[in-house]
Design a protein around this nucleic acid. Structure first.
Lengths: 188, 188
DNA sequence: GTCTATATCAAGATAGAC
DNA sequence: GTCTATCTTGATATAGAC
Protein backbone atom coordinates (compact mmCIF):
# COMPACT_ATOMS: atom_id res chain seq x y z
CA UNK A 1 0.00 0.00 0.00
CA UNK A 2 2.87 2.33 -0.58
CA UNK A 3 1.22 3.97 -3.52
CA UNK A 4 -1.92 5.68 -2.35
CA UNK A 5 -1.39 8.30 -4.98
CA UNK A 6 -4.54 9.91 -6.26
CA UNK A 7 -6.15 6.54 -6.64
CA UNK A 8 -8.78 7.03 -4.04
CA UNK A 9 -9.95 10.37 -5.33
CA UNK A 10 -10.28 8.86 -8.75
CA UNK A 11 -12.49 6.09 -7.46
CA UNK A 12 -14.69 8.57 -5.67
CA UNK A 13 -15.03 10.62 -8.80
CA UNK A 14 -15.98 7.57 -10.80
CA UNK A 15 -18.56 6.77 -8.14
CA UNK A 16 -20.00 10.22 -8.64
CA UNK A 17 -20.05 9.83 -12.39
CA UNK A 18 -21.90 6.55 -12.07
CA UNK A 19 -24.38 8.12 -9.70
CA UNK A 20 -25.09 10.87 -12.20
CA UNK A 21 -25.64 8.44 -15.04
CA UNK A 22 -27.86 6.17 -13.00
CA UNK A 23 -29.95 8.96 -11.61
CA UNK A 24 -30.30 11.26 -14.59
CA UNK A 25 -29.31 9.27 -17.65
CA UNK A 26 -26.32 9.29 -19.89
CA UNK A 27 -26.95 12.56 -21.62
CA UNK A 28 -26.48 14.39 -18.34
CA UNK A 29 -23.00 13.05 -17.85
CA UNK A 30 -21.26 16.39 -17.99
CA UNK A 31 -18.18 17.52 -16.17
CA UNK A 32 -20.27 20.01 -14.26
CA UNK A 33 -22.71 17.37 -13.11
CA UNK A 34 -19.98 15.00 -12.02
CA UNK A 35 -18.12 17.72 -10.19
CA UNK A 36 -21.28 18.80 -8.41
CA UNK A 37 -22.15 15.24 -7.50
CA UNK A 38 -18.69 14.69 -6.07
CA UNK A 39 -18.82 18.06 -4.33
CA UNK A 40 -15.75 19.14 -6.13
CA UNK A 41 -15.13 21.92 -8.57
CA UNK A 42 -14.76 21.26 -12.23
CA UNK A 43 -11.13 22.21 -11.98
CA UNK A 44 -10.64 19.64 -9.27
CA UNK A 45 -12.26 16.98 -11.38
CA UNK A 46 -10.14 17.84 -14.37
CA UNK A 47 -7.04 17.51 -12.31
CA UNK A 48 -7.70 13.80 -11.91
CA UNK A 49 -9.18 13.19 -15.34
CA UNK A 50 -7.62 15.55 -17.83
CA UNK A 51 -10.54 15.12 -20.18
CA UNK A 52 -14.02 13.76 -20.24
CA UNK A 53 -12.85 10.88 -22.36
CA UNK A 54 -10.39 9.88 -19.68
CA UNK A 55 -13.24 9.76 -17.21
CA UNK A 56 -15.42 7.67 -19.48
CA UNK A 57 -12.57 5.31 -20.15
CA UNK A 58 -12.16 4.76 -16.44
CA UNK A 59 -15.88 4.12 -16.08
CA UNK A 60 -15.80 1.53 -18.82
CA UNK A 61 -12.81 -0.19 -17.31
CA UNK A 62 -14.52 -0.43 -13.97
CA UNK A 63 -17.64 -1.89 -15.56
CA UNK A 64 -15.57 -4.54 -17.30
CA UNK A 65 -13.76 -5.34 -14.06
CA UNK A 66 -17.07 -5.80 -12.30
CA UNK A 67 -18.42 -8.21 -14.86
CA UNK A 68 -15.15 -10.05 -15.11
CA UNK A 69 -15.20 -10.59 -11.38
CA UNK A 70 -18.61 -12.20 -11.37
CA UNK A 71 -17.64 -14.30 -14.35
CA UNK A 72 -14.54 -15.51 -12.51
CA UNK A 73 -16.69 -16.36 -9.55
CA UNK A 74 -19.06 -18.36 -11.69
CA UNK A 75 -16.13 -20.11 -13.34
CA UNK A 76 -14.73 -21.27 -10.02
CA UNK A 77 -17.80 -23.20 -9.11
CA UNK A 78 -18.07 -24.93 -12.45
CA UNK A 79 -16.53 -28.37 -12.86
CA UNK A 80 -13.77 -28.34 -15.46
CA UNK A 81 -15.71 -30.41 -17.94
CA UNK A 82 -16.60 -29.51 -21.48
CA UNK A 83 -18.73 -26.40 -21.74
CA UNK A 84 -17.44 -24.96 -18.50
CA UNK A 85 -17.01 -21.45 -19.81
CA UNK A 86 -20.40 -21.43 -21.49
CA UNK A 87 -22.06 -22.60 -18.28
CA UNK A 88 -20.29 -19.91 -16.33
CA UNK A 89 -21.45 -17.29 -18.81
CA UNK A 90 -25.03 -18.44 -18.50
CA UNK A 91 -24.88 -18.23 -14.75
CA UNK A 92 -23.11 -14.90 -14.72
CA UNK A 93 -25.83 -13.42 -16.91
CA UNK A 94 -28.93 -15.05 -15.46
CA UNK A 95 -28.08 -15.32 -11.80
CA UNK A 96 -27.09 -11.75 -11.27
CA UNK A 97 -29.28 -9.87 -8.79
CA UNK A 98 -31.92 -8.20 -10.96
CA UNK A 99 -31.56 -4.71 -9.65
CA UNK A 100 -27.81 -4.88 -10.05
CA UNK A 101 -28.26 -6.11 -13.58
CA UNK A 102 -30.62 -3.30 -14.27
CA UNK A 103 -28.13 -0.72 -13.04
CA UNK A 104 -25.33 -2.16 -15.07
CA UNK A 105 -27.55 -2.23 -18.11
CA UNK A 106 -28.33 1.41 -17.87
CA UNK A 107 -24.73 2.27 -17.20
CA UNK A 108 -23.57 0.22 -20.13
CA UNK A 109 -26.14 1.70 -22.43
CA UNK A 110 -25.19 5.24 -21.55
CA UNK A 111 -21.52 4.53 -21.93
CA UNK A 112 -21.90 2.62 -25.16
CA UNK A 113 -24.01 5.40 -26.49
CA UNK A 114 -21.64 8.13 -25.50
CA UNK A 115 -18.73 6.29 -26.93
CA UNK A 116 -19.92 4.64 -30.10
CA UNK A 117 -18.41 7.39 -32.16
CA UNK A 118 -15.01 7.19 -30.57
CA UNK A 119 -14.12 3.57 -31.13
CA UNK A 120 -10.85 3.89 -29.29
CA UNK A 121 -12.65 4.16 -25.98
CA UNK A 122 -14.13 0.72 -26.51
CA UNK A 123 -10.73 -0.91 -26.76
CA UNK A 124 -10.87 -2.28 -23.22
CA UNK A 125 -14.15 -3.94 -24.10
CA UNK A 126 -12.73 -5.34 -27.30
CA UNK A 127 -9.81 -6.78 -25.40
CA UNK A 128 -12.09 -8.38 -22.87
CA UNK A 129 -14.13 -9.98 -25.62
CA UNK A 130 -11.03 -11.22 -27.35
CA UNK A 131 -10.07 -13.01 -24.15
CA UNK A 132 -13.51 -14.46 -23.66
CA UNK A 133 -13.68 -15.66 -27.21
CA UNK A 134 -10.45 -17.54 -26.70
CA UNK A 135 -12.02 -19.26 -23.73
CA UNK A 136 -15.08 -19.97 -25.83
CA UNK A 137 -12.97 -21.57 -28.52
CA UNK A 138 -11.26 -23.75 -25.96
CA UNK A 139 -14.46 -24.76 -24.25
CA UNK A 140 -14.52 -28.26 -25.69
CA UNK A 141 -18.01 -28.24 -27.17
CA UNK A 142 -18.77 -28.91 -30.81
CA UNK A 143 -17.94 -25.92 -33.02
CA UNK A 144 -20.19 -22.92 -32.59
CA UNK A 145 -22.07 -24.11 -29.55
CA UNK A 146 -20.39 -22.05 -26.88
CA UNK A 147 -20.25 -19.07 -29.17
CA UNK A 148 -23.93 -19.40 -30.00
CA UNK A 149 -24.68 -19.42 -26.29
CA UNK A 150 -22.51 -16.37 -25.82
CA UNK A 151 -24.27 -14.62 -28.67
CA UNK A 152 -27.69 -15.42 -27.27
CA UNK A 153 -26.74 -13.98 -23.90
CA UNK A 154 -25.46 -10.86 -25.55
CA UNK A 155 -28.65 -10.60 -27.57
CA UNK A 156 -30.71 -10.58 -24.41
CA UNK A 157 -28.30 -8.06 -23.02
CA UNK A 158 -28.80 -5.88 -26.08
CA UNK A 159 -32.56 -5.93 -25.63
CA UNK A 160 -32.21 -4.86 -22.07
CA UNK A 161 -29.54 -2.28 -22.84
CA UNK A 162 -31.74 -0.16 -24.99
CA UNK A 163 -35.06 -1.22 -23.59
CA UNK A 164 -35.88 -2.83 -26.90
CA UNK A 165 -37.66 -5.80 -25.46
CA UNK A 166 -38.27 -7.07 -21.96
CA UNK A 167 -38.56 -10.86 -21.87
CA UNK A 168 -40.89 -12.24 -19.24
CA UNK A 169 -39.41 -14.40 -16.49
CA UNK A 170 -41.05 -17.39 -18.14
CA UNK A 171 -39.40 -16.59 -21.44
CA UNK A 172 -36.06 -16.10 -19.76
CA UNK A 173 -36.37 -19.47 -18.06
CA UNK A 174 -37.24 -21.12 -21.34
CA UNK A 175 -34.29 -19.57 -23.11
CA UNK A 176 -31.98 -20.56 -20.32
CA UNK A 177 -33.08 -24.16 -20.53
CA UNK A 178 -32.54 -24.17 -24.27
CA UNK A 179 -29.04 -22.81 -23.84
CA UNK A 180 -28.20 -25.25 -21.09
CA UNK A 181 -29.38 -28.14 -23.21
CA UNK A 182 -27.27 -26.82 -26.02
CA UNK A 183 -24.28 -27.00 -23.73
CA UNK A 184 -25.11 -30.36 -22.26
CA UNK A 185 -26.25 -32.27 -25.32
CA UNK A 186 -23.70 -34.35 -27.19
CA UNK A 187 -22.87 -33.43 -30.73
CA UNK A 188 -25.47 -34.53 -33.21
CA UNK B 1 -50.06 9.10 -56.46
CA UNK B 2 -52.19 12.04 -55.69
CA UNK B 3 -50.24 13.01 -52.62
CA UNK B 4 -46.75 13.95 -53.60
CA UNK B 5 -46.59 16.41 -50.76
CA UNK B 6 -43.16 17.02 -49.35
CA UNK B 7 -42.49 13.34 -49.30
CA UNK B 8 -39.80 13.32 -51.88
CA UNK B 9 -37.79 16.12 -50.31
CA UNK B 10 -37.94 14.29 -47.03
CA UNK B 11 -36.55 11.14 -48.57
CA UNK B 12 -33.73 13.06 -50.19
CA UNK B 13 -32.88 14.67 -46.89
CA UNK B 14 -32.84 11.32 -45.17
CA UNK B 15 -30.54 10.07 -47.93
CA UNK B 16 -28.22 12.94 -47.14
CA UNK B 17 -28.33 12.23 -43.42
CA UNK B 18 -27.45 8.61 -44.06
CA UNK B 19 -24.60 9.63 -46.29
CA UNK B 20 -23.21 11.85 -43.58
CA UNK B 21 -23.39 9.13 -40.97
CA UNK B 22 -21.85 6.51 -43.23
CA UNK B 23 -19.06 8.74 -44.39
CA UNK B 24 -18.12 10.60 -41.24
CA UNK B 25 -19.68 8.72 -38.35
CA UNK B 26 -22.57 9.38 -36.08
CA UNK B 27 -21.07 12.18 -34.08
CA UNK B 28 -20.97 14.34 -37.19
CA UNK B 29 -24.68 14.04 -37.77
CA UNK B 30 -25.45 17.72 -37.32
CA UNK B 31 -28.08 19.79 -38.99
CA UNK B 32 -25.37 21.79 -40.70
CA UNK B 33 -23.73 18.68 -42.07
CA UNK B 34 -26.97 17.22 -43.36
CA UNK B 35 -27.98 20.49 -44.92
CA UNK B 36 -24.62 20.81 -46.62
CA UNK B 37 -24.75 17.23 -47.86
CA UNK B 38 -28.21 17.78 -49.29
CA UNK B 39 -27.13 21.10 -50.75
CA UNK B 40 -29.81 22.84 -48.81
CA UNK B 41 -29.67 25.48 -46.13
CA UNK B 42 -30.27 24.63 -42.53
CA UNK B 43 -33.51 26.57 -42.69
CA UNK B 44 -34.64 24.49 -45.61
CA UNK B 45 -33.84 21.31 -43.78
CA UNK B 46 -35.68 22.46 -40.70
CA UNK B 47 -38.73 23.18 -42.77
CA UNK B 48 -39.11 19.48 -43.46
CA UNK B 49 -37.90 18.20 -40.12
CA UNK B 50 -38.80 20.67 -37.41
CA UNK B 51 -36.14 19.29 -35.13
CA UNK B 52 -33.15 17.03 -35.22
CA UNK B 53 -35.09 14.42 -33.33
CA UNK B 54 -37.68 14.36 -36.06
CA UNK B 55 -34.95 13.66 -38.57
CA UNK B 56 -33.46 10.89 -36.50
CA UNK B 57 -36.86 9.34 -36.01
CA UNK B 58 -37.36 9.23 -39.75
CA UNK B 59 -33.96 7.61 -40.19
CA UNK B 60 -34.79 4.95 -37.67
CA UNK B 61 -38.11 4.24 -39.29
CA UNK B 62 -36.49 3.80 -42.66
CA UNK B 63 -33.94 1.42 -41.23
CA UNK B 64 -36.68 -0.68 -39.70
CA UNK B 65 -38.61 -0.69 -42.95
CA UNK B 66 -35.54 -1.91 -44.79
CA UNK B 67 -34.93 -4.77 -42.45
CA UNK B 68 -38.59 -5.66 -42.29
CA UNK B 69 -38.67 -5.89 -46.06
CA UNK B 70 -35.83 -8.39 -46.22
CA UNK B 71 -37.38 -10.35 -43.41
CA UNK B 72 -40.67 -10.50 -45.30
CA UNK B 73 -38.82 -11.69 -48.33
CA UNK B 74 -37.12 -14.43 -46.37
CA UNK B 75 -40.45 -15.41 -44.84
CA UNK B 76 -42.08 -15.85 -48.21
CA UNK B 77 -39.66 -18.52 -49.32
CA UNK B 78 -39.93 -20.51 -46.10
CA UNK B 79 -42.37 -23.40 -45.97
CA UNK B 80 -45.07 -22.81 -43.35
CA UNK B 81 -43.81 -25.51 -41.04
CA UNK B 82 -42.74 -25.15 -37.44
CA UNK B 83 -39.83 -22.77 -36.97
CA UNK B 84 -40.62 -20.80 -40.07
CA UNK B 85 -40.06 -17.42 -38.50
CA UNK B 86 -36.82 -18.48 -36.86
CA UNK B 87 -35.53 -19.82 -40.16
CA UNK B 88 -36.43 -16.60 -41.88
CA UNK B 89 -34.61 -14.60 -39.22
CA UNK B 90 -31.50 -16.69 -39.66
CA UNK B 91 -31.55 -16.16 -43.38
CA UNK B 92 -32.31 -12.47 -43.13
CA UNK B 93 -29.30 -12.01 -40.86
CA UNK B 94 -26.77 -14.31 -42.46
CA UNK B 95 -27.62 -14.06 -46.13
CA UNK B 96 -27.57 -10.33 -46.39
CA UNK B 97 -24.90 -8.95 -48.74
CA UNK B 98 -21.93 -8.26 -46.48
CA UNK B 99 -21.29 -4.69 -47.51
CA UNK B 100 -24.95 -3.84 -47.08
CA UNK B 101 -24.91 -5.42 -43.65
CA UNK B 102 -21.85 -3.41 -42.79
CA UNK B 103 -23.52 -0.17 -43.76
CA UNK B 104 -26.63 -0.93 -41.83
CA UNK B 105 -24.55 -1.84 -38.83
CA UNK B 106 -22.78 1.44 -38.79
CA UNK B 107 -26.00 3.32 -39.34
CA UNK B 108 -27.71 1.45 -36.56
CA UNK B 109 -24.85 1.96 -34.18
CA UNK B 110 -24.76 5.68 -34.77
CA UNK B 111 -28.48 6.01 -34.40
CA UNK B 112 -28.69 3.83 -31.33
CA UNK B 113 -25.90 5.82 -29.81
CA UNK B 114 -27.41 9.16 -30.54
CA UNK B 115 -30.73 8.09 -29.22
CA UNK B 116 -30.07 5.95 -26.20
CA UNK B 117 -30.80 8.85 -23.93
CA UNK B 118 -34.11 9.70 -25.49
CA UNK B 119 -35.95 6.43 -25.24
CA UNK B 120 -39.00 7.78 -26.98
CA UNK B 121 -37.17 7.81 -30.28
CA UNK B 122 -36.69 4.08 -30.07
CA UNK B 123 -40.43 3.46 -29.92
CA UNK B 124 -40.63 2.36 -33.55
CA UNK B 125 -37.95 -0.21 -32.84
CA UNK B 126 -39.76 -1.39 -29.74
CA UNK B 127 -42.93 -1.80 -31.72
CA UNK B 128 -41.16 -3.77 -34.39
CA UNK B 129 -39.68 -6.09 -31.79
CA UNK B 130 -43.03 -6.54 -30.14
CA UNK B 131 -44.41 -7.75 -33.45
CA UNK B 132 -41.50 -10.06 -34.10
CA UNK B 133 -41.74 -11.51 -30.63
CA UNK B 134 -45.35 -12.37 -31.27
CA UNK B 135 -44.30 -14.22 -34.37
CA UNK B 136 -41.57 -15.92 -32.37
CA UNK B 137 -44.08 -17.06 -29.78
CA UNK B 138 -46.31 -18.48 -32.48
CA UNK B 139 -43.48 -20.21 -34.27
CA UNK B 140 -44.46 -23.67 -33.12
CA UNK B 141 -41.12 -24.75 -31.69
CA UNK B 142 -40.60 -25.89 -28.10
CA UNK B 143 -40.58 -22.94 -25.67
CA UNK B 144 -37.58 -20.68 -25.89
CA UNK B 145 -36.07 -22.12 -29.04
CA UNK B 146 -37.08 -19.47 -31.52
CA UNK B 147 -36.39 -16.76 -29.02
CA UNK B 148 -32.97 -18.16 -28.26
CA UNK B 149 -32.22 -18.11 -31.95
CA UNK B 150 -33.43 -14.55 -32.18
CA UNK B 151 -31.29 -13.60 -29.22
CA UNK B 152 -28.22 -15.21 -30.71
CA UNK B 153 -28.67 -13.32 -33.96
CA UNK B 154 -29.04 -10.09 -32.04
CA UNK B 155 -25.94 -10.90 -30.05
CA UNK B 156 -23.92 -11.21 -33.23
CA UNK B 157 -25.52 -8.01 -34.38
CA UNK B 158 -24.44 -6.30 -31.18
CA UNK B 159 -20.86 -7.38 -31.68
CA UNK B 160 -20.86 -5.97 -35.14
CA UNK B 161 -22.71 -2.82 -34.12
CA UNK B 162 -20.01 -1.58 -31.84
CA UNK B 163 -17.11 -3.40 -33.37
CA UNK B 164 -16.82 -5.43 -30.21
CA UNK B 165 -15.93 -8.67 -31.92
CA UNK B 166 -15.64 -9.78 -35.49
CA UNK B 167 -16.45 -13.48 -35.88
CA UNK B 168 -14.56 -15.26 -38.62
CA UNK B 169 -16.55 -16.71 -41.53
CA UNK B 170 -15.85 -20.15 -40.12
CA UNK B 171 -17.23 -19.16 -36.75
CA UNK B 172 -20.29 -17.65 -38.35
CA UNK B 173 -20.91 -20.82 -40.30
CA UNK B 174 -20.58 -22.90 -37.16
CA UNK B 175 -23.01 -20.72 -35.25
CA UNK B 176 -25.46 -20.81 -38.08
CA UNK B 177 -25.42 -24.58 -38.16
CA UNK B 178 -25.97 -24.72 -34.42
CA UNK B 179 -28.95 -22.41 -34.71
CA UNK B 180 -30.41 -24.29 -37.63
CA UNK B 181 -30.12 -27.55 -35.75
CA UNK B 182 -31.81 -25.92 -32.82
CA UNK B 183 -34.69 -25.06 -35.09
CA UNK B 184 -34.83 -28.41 -36.83
CA UNK B 185 -34.32 -30.80 -33.94
CA UNK B 186 -37.36 -32.22 -32.21
CA UNK B 187 -37.97 -31.37 -28.59
CA UNK B 188 -35.76 -33.29 -26.23
C1' DG C 1 -4.69 19.31 -5.11
C1' DT C 2 -8.34 22.21 -5.49
C1' DC C 3 -10.65 26.48 -6.59
C1' DT C 4 -12.71 30.53 -9.57
C1' DA C 5 -13.12 32.72 -13.66
C1' DT C 6 -13.11 32.79 -18.30
C1' DA C 7 -12.17 31.53 -23.15
C1' DT C 8 -13.99 29.07 -26.82
C1' DC C 9 -16.97 26.73 -29.53
C1' DA C 10 -20.33 23.94 -31.65
C1' DA C 11 -24.92 23.08 -32.28
C1' DG C 12 -29.89 23.46 -32.20
C1' DA C 13 -33.35 26.46 -33.07
C1' DT C 14 -35.90 30.97 -34.34
C1' DA C 15 -37.26 35.08 -37.16
C1' DG C 16 -38.28 37.01 -40.98
C1' DA C 17 -37.05 38.17 -45.97
C1' DC C 18 -37.71 36.42 -50.52
C1' DG D 1 -40.39 26.09 -49.75
C1' DT D 2 -36.04 27.89 -49.17
C1' DC D 3 -32.71 31.25 -47.67
C1' DT D 4 -29.67 34.31 -44.41
C1' DA D 5 -28.77 36.02 -40.14
C1' DT D 6 -28.94 35.69 -35.40
C1' DC D 7 -29.96 34.06 -30.73
C1' DT D 8 -29.16 30.98 -27.02
C1' DT D 9 -27.47 27.37 -24.60
C1' DG D 10 -24.62 24.14 -22.75
C1' DA D 11 -20.32 22.01 -22.63
C1' DT D 12 -15.20 21.27 -22.77
C1' DA D 13 -11.16 23.04 -21.53
C1' DT D 14 -7.55 26.53 -19.94
C1' DA D 15 -5.21 29.95 -16.87
C1' DG D 16 -3.74 31.14 -12.92
C1' DA D 17 -4.68 32.11 -7.82
C1' DC D 18 -4.63 29.86 -3.36
Amino acid sequence: MKKTRTGNSRELLIDAAEAVVLRDGGSTLTLDAVAAEAKVSKGGLLYHFPSKDALIEAMIERLIRTFTASLELALQSEPPTRGRFARALVRAMFDRPPELAEKESRMSASLLAGVANQPRLLDPLRNAYARWMKAVAADGLPPGRSMAVFAALDGIWLWSLFGIYQPTPTQLRAIRIVLEELIATDAS
